[in-house]
């Protein structure tokens, strides 16, 4: 691992994003629009909005980052720049960490904006500290970034890359506890949800919104989310190949 290469890559990725203001606007606004939509959908059932509103603060940014980053590594590969980089003194993990860092810094902004709107305008209530929700939203977006980078290794075309969103994320949304409590699912599904990262994203946000205490289980959730993001980046690096056919 090399800090110079990682930092250079992060700066380069942010430089590329800067040239694409529409993507930045979409990344920052789409979670906000969706959260507003949830508020309106459950306008006459505020209890429901209060229950799902907080977890969605994490899940919407995770999804949008996943989509964007699952395309980026594909672009890197099809433009030939990845092959060029593979002939240079740069580690595969350096590249992925650089991508992760670049997008994560945007994820923080995304998390702050959507949380500010939810608390300030949509009257979303949480028992715990609001900064913890903001931090978790950003962490979830970072996890989405890492998972997107990982799966893009398996896509050879854009058509495949976009399909990974419903394939990887929809099942996690259905199983994480948002739709139905996990302990009331079939045993097999509950066990499956135990190994899916979004389960811990949901758990952590529910904990902050419901009981408010930053207890040990929440810390464990956060550690698992960090671990999952690093694991995804590591696996992504492992699947990049210096030599291709």
């Amino acid at each position: 691992m090399n800090a110079n290469n990682t930092a250079a890559t992060a700066i380069r990725v942010l430089g590329q994003l800067r040239r694409d203001p529409r993507t930045i606007a979409l990344l920052l606004l789409v979670p906000v629009v969706l959260e507003v939509l949830m508020k309106l959908v459950f306008y006459h059932q505020d209890r429901v909005f209060q229950r799902v509103g907080v977890p969605l603060l994490g899940i919407f940014p995770l999804t949008s980052m996943f989509l964007v980053t699952s395309i980026t590594m594909l672009r890197e590969r099809t433009s030939g720049t990845l092959e060029r980089l593979m002939t240079m003194p740069v580690g595969k993990l350096d590249l992925l960490l650089g991508y992760g860092l670049g997008f994560a810094s945007l994820a923080v902004v995304q998390g702050v904006i959507v949380s500010l709107v939810a608390f300030g305008v949509l009257d979303l209530q949480v028992a715990g500290p609001k900064w913890a929700v903001v931090a978790l939203a950003a962490l979830n977006a970072t996890l989405g970034t890492a998972m997107g980078l990982f799966v893009s290794a398996f896509a050879t075309t854009e058509f495949q890359a976009v399909q990974f969103m419903p394939m990887f994320l929809f099942p996690q949304m259905l199983l994480c506890g948002l739709i139905a409590p996990r302990d009331q699912m079939m045993r097999g599904l509950e066990l499956l949800s135990d190994v899916l990262p979004m389960t811990y994203a949901y758990d952590a946000l529910v904990r902050v919104s419901a009981d408010g205490a930053l207890e040990r289980k929440l810390v464990l959730d956060v550690v698992i989310l960090f671990g999952a993001a690093l694991l995804a980046l590591g696996l992504g690096a492992a699947t990049l190949r210096r030599r291709t056919g």
Binding site: R12, G15, Q16, R19, D20, S79, G80, T81, E83
Partner: peptide, 9 residues
Amino acid sequence: QAPSVYGDL
């Protein structure tokens, strides 16, 4: 053979 650089930079 195909230029491999970042078009948006």
